[in-house]
Design a protein around this nucleic acid. Structure first.
Length: 185
DNA sequence: CGTGTTTGACCAGCGC
DNA sequence: GCGCTGGTCAAACACG
């Protein structure tokens, strides 16, 4: 490497993430210029960061993926592999290509690695991650491109059913400050 | 001690 | 049926 800058992408919230409207009670002061009908989900979605240098256009697809049968997030069922463990279920899949030295993108969620496999036609292994939230079934796969090892391909499967912890941490003080400021009006 | 990672084994799907 | 490959499990281990 000739000292090329590797751009670490900012934390992102692609479209497969849950709507923020549920956990957020966003009540802007009545005399501010905040547009009430802003679609924050779209605003923060992948569409909004298409064009950034380090991001490629995400490829959202719907396809049938093997899914744990009756998985309610409970662990301890050792017979998960047997019988009707897998059933065909429509599960949203989103793929991102990111030019980064880091394999793990900070998307605000917590992930636990549960596997790693060497992949055919690639020098780089594929890593498997699962959201650590006990009620959440979202998974992601991280792999570097065989052609260009500086590009990380992250594939998300599923939709989070809980708020983004880091984003909540970030926005909570902001919201409190807004409420504080609005109390003067 | 709780949480996350590593890694070998296991299983299912698919092509031949 | 067999072998290959991708995906997952779970015990062992590391770390703060």
């Amino acid at each position: 490497m000739d000292g090329q800058e590797i751009s670490t992408p900012p934390p992102l919230r692609p479209p497969f993430l849950p709507p923020l409207s549920t956990p957020f009670l966003f009540t802007p002061p009545s005399d501010t210029q905040i547009i009430p009908d802003i679609d924050w989900v779209c605003l923060l979605s992948a569409q909004s960061f298409v064009g950034a240098d380090h991001q490629s256009k995400p490829k959202p697809v719907l396809e049938t993926c093997p899914l744990m049968a009756g998985n309610g997030g409970e662990h301890g069922n050792k017979d998960k592999r047997k019988g009707s463990r897998f059933e065909k279920t429509i599960r949203p899949r989103f793929e991102f290509q990111t030019r980064s030295g880091e394999d793990i993108l900070d998307d605000g969620y917590r992930w636990r690695k549960y596997g790693q496999k060497a992949v055919r036609n690639s020098n780089h292994p594929r890593s498997y991650y699962r959201c650590t939230h006990h009620t959440c079934n979202v998974k992601k796969q991280v792999q570097r491109l065989a052609k260009d090892s500086s590009i990380v391909v992250t594939t998300y499967q599923g939709i989070h059913n809980h708020p983004c912890e880091k984003l909540m941490e970030t926005l909570t003080p902001l919201l409190k400050q807004m409420q504080f400021l609005s109390s003067f009006h």
